[in-house]
């Protein structure tokens, strides 16, 4: 009677089945792939980095931090500096330009980045090169003289 109607019904059905199967596979697969971005834990992740007494006043200490299970590499280096008796500053080793590992130079009292010439002062302020912001500082707390840093207080790759 009206072949076009039958034709469009059939093509609609075929397309719908195709789309449904594609969706049934791809949507869960994509969620599976991007789930690390969806699950965001804002609560602090405190990590012990020794006792406060280990750090002498006004000296830049390199400290190797043992990271939580599942993190890999299992260790990372941070810089710990006690400007005064009551203060402690923990710098991430990542240059704030592109994340290269900065190096502390005792002679000039500066941090040097090995990639594009970034230089930071002892306070973590940018002195030269493309970096746009001061060094990342971890949130810190002391519990009975033990120093802890919040691993979630710097960007994920820092």
């Amino acid at each position: 009677m009206c072949p076009l109607k039958r034709r469009s019904f059939l093509s609609l059905s075929v397309n719908a089945v195709g789309a449904a199967i594609t969706g049934a596979v791809l949507v869960p697969a994509c969620i599976y792939a991007i789930h690390p971005a969806l699950r965001k834990d804002e609560s602090p992740l405190w990590n012990a980095i020794g006792s406060l007494d280990e750090y002498r006043l006004n000296v830049m200490h390199e400290r190797i931090v043992e990271l939580p299970a599942g993190w890999n590499p299992r260790q990372k280096l941070v810089f710990v500096w006690r400007p005064t008796d009551s203060e402690v500053v923990v710098f991430s080793r990542a240059c704030t330009d592109l994340g290269c590992p900065i190096n502390w130079d005792e002679s000039s009292q500066c941090f040097y980045c090995p990639c594009h010439g970034g230089i930071f002062s002892k306070e973590g302020e940018r002195m030269a090169g493309p970096p746009n912001r001061p060094l990342w500082r971890y949130a810190t707390r002391t519990l009975d003289g033990a120093l802890e840093i919040d691993l979630r207080s710097v960007p994920p790759m820092a």
């Binding site: 990271l67 979630r152 790759m157």
Partner: peptide
């Protein structure tokens, strides 16, 4: 979405067993 994109590549909140 910068942080989210980084976590998608890393497969977690930092460099971890899944990243490689």
């Amino acid at each position: 979405i910068g942080d989210e994109l980084v976590r998608i590549v890393l497969g977690g909140e930092a460099f971890n067993d899944l990243t490689l």
